[in-house]
């Protein structure tokens, strides 16, 4: 028996909107730790890791570990039917081939339930090694989204370079080239508006903008984004989910042949 009650149901709606274009089908894993997911896109270029910790739910009952295969597009369709202020409860019985999403309006005058068919998905978990990153950039998530969008109108790939000067996003295309440099800036009114750069080693990596643009669909989840880079490792683009956990996107770099 599984019953997870999330008062801020809009968080789950935003999570689905942030990953449904990158991943088609995925297993949601439920354990005493929380509600989580790890999945790759169909070309195995990017990986998404989601964690919603059990403490973040108003009620969290998970009698035994359960893995539920879902089509994310279909799940997003159902969650779109929940109001932004609704409380969402996820329910499943042991051995059932369906999951139920229950939506309660804040005043309890409208209660809906949507039953979705589960699917069998063969997926193996990947071990993500703990890494010490050469550079970690924290910046406003809207700024990162803007940069990815702007650069993708010029080129297909972005080179992200961190030096002591700041973080530089560069692209080249048929019509020309573009460079955007963001310097560390902590003298802001709101801490979330800061750009903070921690650098151990200079790093420069090239990525496909098609994927970074998928990641920025998570912008509504968090006002800041953390980009962790090491030479010759996948970049980690992390959006924290207030009080609950995170969505992390890992993207394999482009490699010189």
């Amino acid at each position: 028996m599984l019953e997870l009650r999330l008062v801020q149901g809009s968080l789950l709606k935003k999570v689905l909107e942030s990953i449904k274009e990158l991943v088609n089908d995925a297993n949601f894993d439920c354990s005493s730790t929380g509600f989580s997911l790890q999945a790759m896109d169909s070309s195995h270029v990017a990986l998404v890791a989601l964690l919603l910790r059990s403490e973040g739910f108003e009620h969290y009952r998970c009698d035994r570990n359960l893995s539920m295969g879902m089509n994310l597009n279909n799940m997003a369709k159902m969650l779109k039917c929940a109001g932004n202020d609704d409380i969402i409860t996820i329910k499943a019985d042991d051995g059932s081939d369906t999951v139920t999403f229950m939506f309660e309006s804040p005043t309890q005058d409208k209660i809906s339930d949507f039953e979705m068919k589960l699917m069998d998905i063969d997926s193996e978990h990947l071990g993500i090694p703990e890494a010490e990153y050469d550079a970690i950039v924290r910046m406003p998530s809207a700024e990162f989204a803007r940069i990815c969008k702007d650069l993708s109108s010029i080129g297909d790939t972005v080179v992200i370079s961190v030096t002591k000067e700041g973080v530089k996003f560069s692209t080249k295309g048929d019509i020309g080239a573009a460079n955007i440099v963001c310097r560390q800036n902590t003298t802001v009114d709101k801490p979330d508006d800061a750009t903070v750069i921690e650098m151990k080693e200079p790093v420069s990596l090239q990525f496909a903008l098609r994927y970074t643009n998928f990641f920025t669909k998570a912008t509504p989840l968090s006002s800041t984004v953390t980009i962790s880079l090491s030479n010759e490792l996948p970049v980690v683009v992390e959006y924290k989910i207030a009080e609950m956990g995170y969505v992390r996107f890992y993207l394999a770099p482009k490699i010189e042949e």
């Binding site: 270029v45 990947l126 071990g127 890992y250």
Partner: peptide
Amino acid sequence: DPKQGNILSFFKKK
């Protein structure tokens, strides 16, 4: 042009 890397060459199956 640089070649697109693959996640499976960085992270191994458990």
